[in-house]
Design a binder for these strands. Structure first.
Length: 417
DNA sequence: TGTCCACAGGAAATACGGGGGT
DNA sequence: ACCCCCGTATTTCCTGTGGACA
């Protein structure tokens, strides 16, 4: 395999990160993807579904199912672009909005987001009633009489009182605006409809479209396009694309994560001054995994960080990977004292340990020791390097000096014994 | 066989913090 | 400045429990 000059591997880094692409470039990539017959079946279904618009009829609502990164959003956006074009030619009034509920939020936030999207309201944190937001949304749409396609992305992220939100969209909104509303929901939970108010479901005439995770072949298409656009010719050793596609399709079938892996591998290759090899892909996959944990802890609530720090201290003090709620809580109290923050009660602390379990930082299980009571065992299984990294992130967030704190913690551990 | 440990985890009450209206 | 609202975090109070041990 011939080496290219090291600084030449990444020619156009923007094509390795969708967020950096400007709209026209995004479309360009999308077009190539769709030309490669990836998701063409779904595109056909979409155009069939929306065809009635061109004849002046009113299509049903639509639901797109599929895991994250299966292209629900991209396909829909790409299609909406085409649809907008066609309607423009035929002079059919059409308005399209994309409401992306990327992070979990209560009904209130969701409505607020929608209102903001329609320029009907400013962003509130709290304090304004739901009814008021609904009214603002309706009045923003009160003079539009054409087709209104509202693409609600990640609908299952609406948490508290999803029924209120849904019932507003499905039952109230179509009645209260003059335009013809077509709702498009996207969700990555297949059972999303099951825990919905039956009254809403019965009201909801909906057609469903399922997006399967990308298979390895699709991913290879997607990756090749990126490689061609972003990297120097010959920079990718044979088998690398297949490897990335295989890893990704096995783990998640998520195109974005696959491209991320390609990008990370390319960066490693660039730094090492060589080509992208299969070994580098493995290394990159590992790094991505690590960064995921590091980012999660960095942005986690203070309580969770403190709990994580307490677990790490406990493990270090005892030299065992396993520990129990009680001793961790003791260390947590010390940590709080050192960080000059108020410690929460043990009930809340347990809850945050559960959360750490949920996010995969630790594994916990309940252990019965008969007469010696029941305890929740907490096992820390991350590798040493990652633990250190997490620990220093937490200390940094709390503005603590490593030495000072661990000294205090070690002393306290001695005095407890 | 029953006791009883040392917690788990549910439910309800309360505190908190940001924001609007007046 | 004051009061009220709302969603969320935490506290308080509580009942439940697997199995070693007497």
């Amino acid at each position: 395999m011939e080496n290219v000059a090291s600084h030449d591997i990444i020619m156009n880094a923007r094509y390795l990160n969708d967020e950096q692409l400007i709209h026209s470039e995004q479309l360009e990539v999308l077009e190539e993807i769709f030309n490669a017959n990836v998701r063409s079946e779904e595109m056909t279904q979409l155009s069939r579904h929306f065809a009635p618009i061109l004849k002046g009829n009113h299509p049903n609502h639509l639901a797109l199912w599929g895991k994250t990164g299966t292209g629900k959003t991209l396909t829909m956006r790409f299609f909406m672009g085409i649809l907008a074009e066609m309607c423009k030619k035929k002079k059919i009034p059409l308005r399209i909005e994309h409401l992306n509920l990327a992070t979990a939020r209560p009904c209130f936030r969701a409505l607020n987001d929608l209102a903001c999207l329609l320029n009907a309201s400013k962003r509130y944190k709290k304090g304004v009633s739901l009814v008021e937001l609904m009214y603002k949304i309706e009045s923003a749409l009160s003079d539009f009489k054409g087709y209104f396609v509202l693409f609600v992305d990640e609908i299952d992220h609406v948490r508290t009182d999803q029924d209120t939100f849904m019932s507003f969209l499905v039952r109230r909104l179509p009645q209260s605006i003059p335009g013809k509303l077509i709702l498009v929901f996207a969700s990555n939970k297949l059972n999303w409809r099951d825990n919905l108010d039956p009254r809403v479901v019965s009201f909801l005439k909906i057609r469903e479209l399922l997006f399967d995770p990308y298979n390895a072949v699709d991913l290879q298409h997607i990756l090749r396009i990126r490689v061609k656009k972003a990297l120097a010719p010959g920079a990718v050793e044979s088998g690398v694309i297949e490897k990335i596609a295989a890893l990704s399709s096995r783990d998640h079938g998520d195109a974005r994560q696959a491209v991320d892996l390609l990008a990370r591998s390319a960066e490693l290759a660039q730094a090492a001054g060589g080509n992208i090899s299969i070994e580098l892909v493995d290394k990159a996959a590992e790094e991505i995994e690590r960064d995921k944990y590091a980012d999660m802890i960095r942005t986690a609530p203070a309580l969770m960080q403190a709990a994580m720090a307490a677990i790490i201290c406990t493990v270090r003090n005892t030299g065992r990977r396993k520990s129990e709620t009680g001793e961790i809580y003791e260390n947590y109290r010390v940590f709080c004292q050192q960080a000059q923050m108020k410690a929460v009660a043990i009930r809340a602390f347990r809850e945050s340990l559960n959360e750490l379990d949920l996010y995969g930082f630790v594994r916990t299980r309940i252990l019965s020791r008969g007469r010696h009571g029941r305890v929740r065992e907490v096992v820390l299984e991350l590798d040493e390097e990652l633990i250190s990294k997490i620990y220093s992130i937490i200390l940094f967030n709390f503005q603590l000096r490593d030495k000072k704190l661990s000294k205090v913690l070690v002393n306290s551990a001695h005095s407890v014994n």
